[in-house]
């Protein structure tokens, strides 16, 4: 099970602006371990989905070039303070994480 997603989401008008930080190593598979000089196997988030009121409001497909501990921000309409947003990621090793947060 992956670590929880840190989410900060604010509503202005009916637009929610979501900022999320996902603790994850995001190993590209190209980095060598400085001690053993062996390639560190690729381990990275492949997709991220955000849902609001049962609807997918954003999908992200990521490759190995997204930075360690990925940060993403996005916005969507039809939101109100107090609503819940659910975010979920999967990685290439089958790990995943799901976190819910309340819009402020």
């Amino acid at each position: 099970m992956g670590k929880p997603i840190k989410i900060r989401a604010k509503v202005k008008g009916d637009i929610a602006e979501v900022k999320a930080l996902m603790p994850h190593d995001m190993e590209s598979g190209l980095r060598r371990d400085p001690d053993t000089d062996e390639l560190v196997p690729a381990h990275y988030i492949t997709d991220v989905v955000a849902e609001h009121k049962g609807e997918v409001v954003m999908t992200a497909y990521w490759g190995t070039a997204v930075s360690k501990n990925p940060y993403v921000s996005f916005s969507f309409t039809g939101a109100a303070a107090g609503d819940t947003i659910k975010m979920h990621w999967n990685d290439n090793k089958g790990d995943s994480s799901t976190t819910e947060a309340v819009l402020k």
Partner: peptide, 17 residues
């Protein structure tokens, strides 16, 4: 590096690192 798929309710702006 990344592709973001918008929904009908998306505001077309994204940030990533």
């Amino acid at each position: 590096a990344a592709s973001f798929i918008m929904s009908p309710r998306s505001v077309p702006t994204v940030s990533v690192r």
